[in-house]
Amino acid sequence: MQKKKITELLKNAIANKNIDDLEKAIMAGFQTKENSDDYVGILIELLSADWHLCHENIVLQLQQLKDPRAIKILQKTVERKFKYLEYDDSFGLGRKCTWALADIGTEEAKEALRKIAASSNEKISGYAKKRLNRWHQEYKRKGR
């Protein structure tokens, strides 16, 4: 399925706040590496929203797409607490955000990781420090 079609599915899911349709659209998004400005913009918007349960998959999509426009929202999301993730004391969503930033691989992404590394949350800080310490070893994954 083309990203253009998936983008339309996402827009409809958002308009109706339909979690099932949102999940289907996001899963379809993993099937193509094709990128579009609208698609990334919608993922960024969805990462801020709290009406769904798809934040981790959205972060994984942004990691796959490696679009620098996602840096700010990934940095904000790192320590964000969603009610449905309260059980997760290992901060899996934050960890995924640090991986996505590392894979974006720009200097701006690296600076975001430096700021996260200064977090008072030791686990999240540790995730960011690990990505920074392995920045050059993971360079091939960055696709730069």
Rank of each mutant, 00 (worst) to 15 (best):
V78L: 03
K33N: 13
L43H: 08
D50C: 02
R69N: 07
L132V: 11
W99H: 13
L101H: 07
L113I: 10
W99Q: 12
D88S: 09
L9I: 02
A13F: 07
Q2S: 15
A128F: 09
C54M: 13
E86A: 15
S125K: 02
K72L: 08
K81G: 06
R69I: 00
A28T: 01
R69Y: 08
K96G: 03
H52Y: 01
L60T: 05
S119V: 06
A117H: 03
K83R: 08
L74E: 05
Q61H: 09
R69W: 06
N133P: 00
D67L: 07
I26G: 05
K140W: 12
F91I: 10
E111S: 12
W51V: 06
Y87C: 01
I42K: 03
D37T: 13
R144A: 08
D88R: 06
Q61R: 15
T7D: 02
D38G: 11
K140V: 12
A15I: 01
H52D: 06
E86I: 08
E86F: 10
Y87S: 11
R95K: 14
L65I: 04
D21W: 06
Q64D: 14
A112N: 07
L85N: 13
R80S: 10
L113M: 10
A112W: 06
R141C: 04
G92M: 12
L47H: 07
K24T: 02
P68G: 01
L43Y: 10
E34K: 11
D50F: 02
A128G: 06
A100D: 08
V78W: 07
L113K: 04
L47V: 05
K76Q: 15
R131N: 12
I73N: 01
L47N: 03
R80L: 03
A117Q: 05
K76G: 00
N133W: 07
I73W: 04
